[in-house]
Simulated scan of single mutants.
Amino acid sequence: MKLGAAIRALALILLSTTPALAEVDPAHAARRASQQISEATLALDEAEKASDRVAALTQTVEAFEEGLSAMREGLRRATIRERAIELEFEARREEVAQLIGVLQSMQSSPTPLLLLHPAGPLGTARTGMMLSDVTPSLQAKVEGLRAQLHEVATLRALQESAVDSLREGLFGAQQARAQLSQAISDRDDLPQRFLDEPEHLHTLLQSSETLEAFASGLVPDEEEPAALRLDFDALQGTLPLPASGTVLRRFNEADAAGIRRPGLLLGTQPLALVTAPVPATIRYRGPLLDYGNVMILEPQSGTLMVIAGMNEVYGEVGQVVSGGTAIGLMGGKSPNAEEFLQNSTEGSGAQRSETLYIEVRQGNAPVDPAPWFAVTKE
């Protein structure tokens, strides 16, 4: 390789080097997640003294879920960043080795030979100018590679140290869920809008072959008190999803078997907390057809929100719950720290193994729930 060509090739490599892929430091994100888990652990201790233990424990469970989700994302980004650096090293290894060889041969060549440029003295001068321009860039590149190697070491150490934080977070979340279930079981202070009618619900369950038939058969209640009235339509675009997750299918979107359902299907983490998106009266809770455990909420007269697929459901028919109240837990098995770490670093989709179905019905007909939740699909 001639000297001029070698210098031009080196310049191209230096100019084409891409900046770091991660705009936000993944190591910082994972450390912040570890701090969130520690804060949630402190909140669990404080919940014992709270006047409203249910509300405090609900917030604590959500804090653990947010911390673990942030840890998962931080570790995923750390793994992606590490692989990107390794791929960059691998892709440029041969080019850099060749150029280093050229530069070493230049250094060992006698000075008179270096002055013998085919274009004469002018070419020699131009070559010297190019080399003087490239040398600082080469030094900067070396420093950049050194920093990347240090970053890889930091990311690997971070993944190894994450296990302790994960154990703390997973154990704390398990404790908080158990305490929340007990606190809800002991609660007797929720307002009661009407009394449960078990005989009517039993008859309706026995005679209904579809969710639509069951929902349509719920006995309309008298108009709600003024204190409970809500303009549900005015809330479009403002409601949080009942659980943290990813929308898998939208309203009337066919699944792999061609089946369409008039609601949203949400993929969630195992044991994810499910909360009421809006203040509402519980019209039904319990198993229903093939939907698993179902919670039917009535946010306003003539409107029903069906939330189905939970492993546990909280509350009693007729109770009035506020927005953000825990109404259930998803099923599944919580992974241990090692499994959690492996799934995070491998980018496995197994974490969202549970599915929650959400349907909104107005005037006995299903409507698209998405406008109320302003959801996006990954």
Rank of each mutant, 00 (worst) to 15 (best):
L14W: 00
D45W: 02
L273T: 09
I100L: 08
A70N: 07
P225C: 06
R72V: 01
G263W: 01
A226Y: 00
V306L: 08
R260L: 06
S161H: 13
A234P: 04
I37S: 06
R250M: 04
E212P: 07
L248A: 15
E90S: 15
L99Y: 07
P242C: 07
R187K: 11
A272Y: 00
E338V: 03
F214K: 11
A326F: 04
L145R: 06
V24Q: 15
T60G: 11
T154V: 14
F89M: 13
P240T: 01
A30K: 09
A119V: 05
L113E: 10
F89G: 12
D233K: 15
R283K: 10
D233L: 13
P240Y: 00
F340C: 11
A43E: 06
Q182L: 03
R156M: 10
M310L: 05
L271C: 14
E253T: 06
M295H: 03
L155D: 04
S165Q: 00
L248K: 15
T17K: 08
D255I: 09
T124Q: 15
A272P: 03
A280L: 06
A234T: 04
E378F: 09
A63L: 01
E298Y: 08
L44S: 08
I259T: 07
E88C: 06
A125Y: 05
T281P: 11
L44R: 13
T238P: 03
T60W: 01
R72L: 02
H200T: 12
G324F: 03
A213G: 14
R53L: 12
P121S: 03
L190H: 08
A47W: 00
L239W: 02
A5W: 10
D255R: 14
Q107N: 14
A30V: 09
T355C: 11
V163E: 07
Q35P: 08
L341G: 12
A254F: 02
T154N: 15
D221G: 13
N343Q: 15
V317F: 04
R126Y: 01
E359I: 13
T268Y: 02
A308C: 09
E94V: 13
